[in-house]
Design a protein around this nucleic acid. Structure first.
Lengths: 336, 336
DNA sequence: CTGAAAGCGCTTACAG
DNA sequence: CTGAAAGCGCTTACAG
């Protein structure tokens, strides 16, 4: 690999001039610039990332911490990762991906060795063990998912309470008086996935206001429990005329269970859920839903992180992204 | 952040002694070591990754190139990424994740700036545009997926020809005389996904040996085309008593289409496919299948890459991993 | 068993 | 408009 000294020698200038020519941080005469450009071309020179990081204290890399909660649905995570990688790249950053079990140790290792300029943490939970280490590190960071203590952290998440109200209001508008709500699994709730209870509690509150009866089930995430549970719910709807599914694995499995039972949506049952457009396409889900917008959340996190890295000192605080309801025709007035 | 000089000062030794104490590359007296350890603890010292990379010409990072072929099924990719990340980590390496559209440019940027010690390329296709750049870079690399020209490359992939023979032999053993084969999409074939035709051609060859009739369809990957096509195939099986699905999206959609039609497996139709145990669990697939073993392939790629990085000069060549058939009871003698 | 020094390849004040 | 030099924080021959 050619070094900046090789370029300097070939162009007949000093290394510093090469550096300035490439960064554009000071004026260079046209003739010199031409010679430098030619030398750079000829040698195929690109600055060594490590040397540059050492000199500038900037790596142009961000650490992306993916996290698979026990009993969460893996494909959902990918929807966040790709938009984040794209947004980072557009800003000139690469992505160091952290996937370890031991989150705090990984943060410490990568943070304290200066491998990255900042972190994005996905799927942050209520009392996330990574946060203590993150605070100690004093590095820029953006979180996706709401922890219990947001002091000094930059957090973005969907406004699940608003989402719940949208859903209840939608059912109420069509005259539903009774519904079944399937929440994320008990494991997710135990791990502290705040989105679970933020949605559920707001849902129950709004339903009470409208006088809508709600039966709640914490949804299983793996087979065969999932199929048995969801099948049982479908077989015993009671007076419920609608089903609200806040659980990726369950909504993905729903179409086949519905069709096995000959239940037609929305004629026999109204269904409403939460998922991204992409997720819905992947699993062919014909259901009206809250768009969870992982791309929007991911890009928001990147923007927030880069602002901090660029010293905007924008500790950010908590941003709740407003949800939107996407009609797909699976909600209609009840026939019973 | 504390530096090695801070530690040296606090411990009353030289920086080089600190370095040697930490690397264990030369004997250090117990007393000195104790003082150094204490100083390291006290200051929370960790060596700066950039400085170390500059001094050693080693980054302890590997570049992982994920690649989503048009009309491939995204969740399948994740199964490779996680085991690779785990295996890398176990060996002390972190993962720089590349996801860009422009593969060659990404390789050049990361490779020529010395950000990584080597690359793993996923989903390599027949005439992969990344390979020219990879050869120019002269960096260690391991590929998952078979390109047309493997000269000088280290490649690992499932032995799809052997897999096809296993499948045909399994059908033949139960007396099937006619089958339908759904292959990856035409887009995958056009992009050069060699696994598509390696499986198909071996399948047709073996079927001919056994005198088994085969009707072949290139499977659509997105809805609603997928459902219409697969539904049409199920509605018009002709004399086919078995269905072989080499297409992630189609096999994921199959259970719901079968149940909608009241087709019972294996009573009415034998089904056999290719997917990983994890993929099968995710989509609740009750089908006998070739285990595609993404974790094994991923770990193999990491091992091969690390051997090259450690100068084993093991250009590797092509390794085909032997497939295994996992019985799940979806193949039985035909009733017709 | 330990230290002083060179060197890895950049960037950026300091000088002119 | 350009150059010489210091410095970023390590590792590792070279010396003792």
């Amino acid at each position: 690999m050619a070094t900046i000294d090789d370029v300097a020698r070939l162009a007949g200038v000093s290394a510093s001039t090469v550096s300035y020519a490439m960064s554009g941080k000071r004026p260079i005469s046209a003739a010199t610039r031409a010679r430098i450009d030619r030398a750079v071309q000829e040698l195929g020179f690109t600055p060594h990332a490590g040397a540059r990081a050492l000199a500038t204290a900037r790596t142009m890399v961000i650490g992306l911490f993916v996290q698979f909660l026990a009993s969460e649905f893996p494909p959902a995570m990918l929807q966040y990762v790709l938009p984040i990688a794209d947004a980072a790249r557009e800003a000139g950053y690469d992505i160091l991906m952290l996937t370890e079990e031991d989150g705090p140790a990984a943060l410490r290792r990568v943070g304290s060795t200066g491998m990255v300029d900042g972190f994005i943490l996905l799927n942050v939970v209520d009392r996330d063990p990574r946060l203590a280490e993150l605070r100690r590190l004093h590095q820029p960071a953006a979180l996706v998912g709401l922890p219990a203590d947001t002091e000094g952290l930059s957090v973005v998440d969907l406004d699940f309470a608003a989402a719940a109200r949208l859903v209840v209001d939608r059912l109420h508008a069509d005259g539903h008086r009774s519904t079944v709500l399937i929440t994320p699994s008990t494991e997710v709730i135990a791990m502290g996935g705040a989105y679970a209870w933020r949605f559920r509690d707001a849902f129950l509150g709004r339903a009470a206001e409208h006088g809508i009866r709600v039966r709640t089930h914490a949804g299983a995430t793996i087979q065969p429990e999932l199929g048995e549970q969801l099948g049982g719910i479908l077989d015993d709807l009671g007076d419920a005329t609608s089903l609200v599914v806040h659980n990726d694995a369950q909504i993905a499995a729903l179409p086949s269970l519905l069709s096995a039972r000959g239940i037609e949506v929305p004629r026999d049952l109204s269904v409403i859920s939460l998922f991204s457009e992409e997720f819905g396409r992947l699993f062919s889900l014909p259901f009206t839903s809250i768009e969870t917008g992982p791309d929007r959340l991911g890009r928001h996190a990147v923007a927030s992180l880069l602002a901090q890295i660029d010293g905007a000192d924008d500790a950010g605080g908590v941003s709740f992204v407003a949800p939107a309801l996407v009609e797909r025709g699976s909600v209609a007035p009840p026939s019973r």
